[in-house]
Write a protein that binds this DNA or RNA. Structure first.
Lengths: 187, 187
DNA sequence: TGAAAATGGGACACTGATGTGTCATTCTTC
DNA sequence: GAAGAATGACACATCAGTGTCCCATTTTCA
C-alpha cells in the first residue's frame, strides 16, 4: 500500500474524491455512507482508503487545491494583461465549481488545518489592483468585493452549465461579459 | 399558550428564529443545542416553543417568507419602472441575507414541504423580461441567469456589510451599480 | 491457473444529536 | 406577597453516523 499504487487503487480513490467533492460542495454534513453510495463503493472500501472522515477531508482539501492551482497556472500562462488573467482564471475555474465551493463556502471550515494554504490570497488582490491601475476595473471598488463578485459569478455560471440551461461556451462568455461590464470604470 | 401571547413569549420566539436563521443560513446541520446557545436560551425552552426540529424549520420557513414578502412589497410600492423595482428589491433584501440563504441555498431542502411557496417564481422573471423590453437589461441574457446574478450579488453585498468591510449605503450602491452595468445592453 | 490484491457486507461498540419528561427556580403580574 | 407563567438543569431513551473487525467473494495480474 505504501509503495504500490495500482491503477485500480487510483481510480477508486479518484471516484471517492469526486463523490465527496460533489456532495460536500452542497452539504458538508453529507455522511460517508452517502459518499460511498455516490462513488459506487462500499463503506468498508471507503474506510480502507480514508480511515477517518478527517482523512478524507484532508485528502480532498489537498486534491482540490492542487486542481485549482493547475488550472490557475495554465490561465496565468495563457494571459498577458492583468484583466485578461483574471478573466481566464474565472473561465478555467468554472469546471471546478464543486472544488471551489468545498474550499471556500465556509471560511472557518479549514481554520487551523495544516494543509490549508491561502497562497492566492495575495496573488488575486494584486491582480485586481493591477487591473484597476490599467483602467480595466473600477478603482473605487474594494478588491475584496471584486473577488466576492468573481466567485459568485463563477458559481452562478457553473450552476447554469450543470443544469444544462446554457452551453459551457455561452455561459462563460456571459460570465466574462457581466464581470467586465459590471466592474468597469466606465459610467 | 394557545390563547395567550405575552410579550416575553414573542421575544423568546423571535430570538430563536433569529438564531436559527443565522446558523442555518451557513450550516443547515447546526444542532438545536447550537441554536439554543446562540439564542441565549436553554435547549429545554427551545423544545417548548418548537417540539421537533421540523417544527422550527417550518416556522422559520414561514417567517422568512413573510419577511421577504414584506420587504418585496414595499420595494414594489416605491418603484415605478421594472428596472427600478428590481434594484429596490435587491437593496431591500440585503438585510435579509440570512433568510435568503436559508430559503434558497439548497433547492431540494423544502421540496414537498406544504409551507413552501414560490410565488415570486413567476413575478421575478416577469420583471426581468419587462426590464429587458425597456432596454434596461440585455435581452440576450437568460432571465434565470439574471436572477442567479441578483442573488449572488445580494449575498456578496450582505457579507461585506456584516463583516464591516463596507458601510451599508456604500455597499448597496455598489451592488446596484454592478448589477446595472454588468447586465446592461450597452456594449 | 493460482496467488495476491481489492472489494462487499455484516456485526459490533461508541458518540453526538434528538425527543421526552420531571422538578426546582426565577420572573411577571395582579 | 401569592399565583401562574417562563425558564434552566438534569435524566433518560432513541437513533443515525462513525470507526473497527472479520470473513467471503470478486477482480487483477504474473
Amino acid at each position: 500500500m505504501t509503495t504500490i499504487d495500482s491503477g485500480v487503487r487510483q481510480r477508486t480513490r479518484r471516484a471517492i474524491l469526486e463523490a465527496a467533492a460533489t456532495l460536500w460542495a452542497r452539504d458538508f454534513s453529507a455522511s460517508l455512507g452517502d459518499i460511498a453510495d455516490r462513488a459506487e463503493v462500499s463503506r468498508s472500501t471507503l474506510h480502507r482508503y480514508f480511515p477517518e472522515r478527517q482523512a478524507l477531508v484532508d485528502a480532498l482539501l489537498l486534491d482540490s487545491q492542487a486542481q485549482v492551482e493547475t488550472a490557475w497556472d495554465a490561465a496565468v500562462a495563457a494571459s498577458s494583461t492583468p484583466i485578461e488573467t483574471v478573466e481566464n482564471i474565472m473561465t478555467a475555474i468554472v469546471d471546478l465549481a464543486d472544488q471551489i465551493l468545498f474550499l471556500f463556502s465556509d471560511p472557518a471550515r479549514f481554520a487551523g488545518n495544516p494543509n490549508w494554504r491561502d497562497d492566492e490570497d495575495e496573488a488575486l488582490p494584486d491582480l485586481i489592483r493591477a487591473a484597476q491601475r490599467d483602467g480595466d476595473l473600477d478603482p473605487a471598488i474594494d478588491p475584496a468585493f471584486v473577488i466576492g463578485v468573481m466567485y459568485s459569478l463563477i458559481y452562478v455560471t457553473a450552476e447554469s452549465v450543470s443544469t444544462g440551461a446554457l452551453p459551457r461556451h455561452k455561459a462563460t462568455e456571459t460570465l466574462v461579459r457581466v464581470f467586465r461590464h459590471g466592474l468597469s470604470p466606465r459610467a
